[in-house]
Amino acid sequence: MPRRYEIDDAFKHAIKISSKGRRTVTTEDFVAELAKRNWHWGLREANRWIEIYVNTFSDVSTVEGDARTFLLFNPNGGL
Score class of each variant (00 low, 15 high):
38 N>E: 07
19 S>H: 08
48 R>D: 15
68 R>V: 00
57 F>T: 01
25 V>F: 01
48 R>I: 11
32 A>I: 03
30 F>S: 01
52 I>A: 13
33 E>R: 05
64 E>Q: 10
46 A>M: 06
32 A>P: 00
56 T>S: 15
25 V>T: 00
62 T>E: 13
67 A>D: 06
28 E>P: 04
13 H>M: 14
75 P>G: 12
44 R>M: 11
70 F>W: 15
47 N>K: 08
15 I>H: 03
60 V>T: 11
20 K>C: 12
57 F>G: 03
33 E>P: 05
44 R>L: 10
72 L>T: 04
33 E>A: 05
72 L>Q: 14
51 E>V: 08
20 K>L: 14
54 V>K: 11
60 V>G: 06
70 F>Q: 01
70 F>V: 02
27 T>V: 03
37 R>Q: 08
73 F>L: 08
49 W>D: 06
48 R>S: 15
69 T>R: 07
47 N>F: 05
15 I>N: 02
35 A>D: 13
24 T>F: 05
16 K>R: 15
35 A>S: 12
35 A>E: 14
39 W>P: 03
25 V>E: 01
38 N>M: 02
54 V>M: 09
42 G>T: 10
48 R>F: 15
76 N>V: 03
30 F>D: 00
14 A>W: 01
30 F>A: 02
77 G>W: 08
69 T>E: 07
57 F>C: 02
13 H>Y: 13
23 R>E: 14
44 R>N: 11
28 E>N: 12
40 H>L: 10
75 P>Q: 14
68 R>Q: 02
20 K>P: 06
29 D>H: 05
53 Y>N: 14
69 T>H: 04
13 H>N: 15
45 E>A: 09
19 S>E: 12
16 K>S: 15
13 H>F: 12
63 V>A: 09
34 L>Q: 03
15 I>R: 03
29 D>P: 02
51 E>C: 13
39 W>G: 03
26 T>W: 00
43 L>P: 06
50 I>L: 13
26 T>D: 00
16 K>M: 12
33 E>D: 06
70 F>E: 00
60 V>I: 15
59 D>I: 00
56 T>C: 13
51 E>S: 14
24 T>Q: 03
75 P>A: 11
38 N>F: 02
46 A>S: 13
64 E>S: 11
43 L>V: 07
44 R>Q: 12
45 E>R: 09
24 T>Y: 06
72 L>P: 05
30 F>I: 02
46 A>Y: 02
40 H>V: 10
76 N>R: 12
62 T>K: 14
52 I>M: 10
46 A>F: 04
23 R>F: 06
62 T>R: 14
26 T>I: 00
30 F>T: 02
66 D>A: 12
68 R>G: 00
21 G>A: 09
26 T>N: 01
33 E>Q: 11
73 F>S: 07
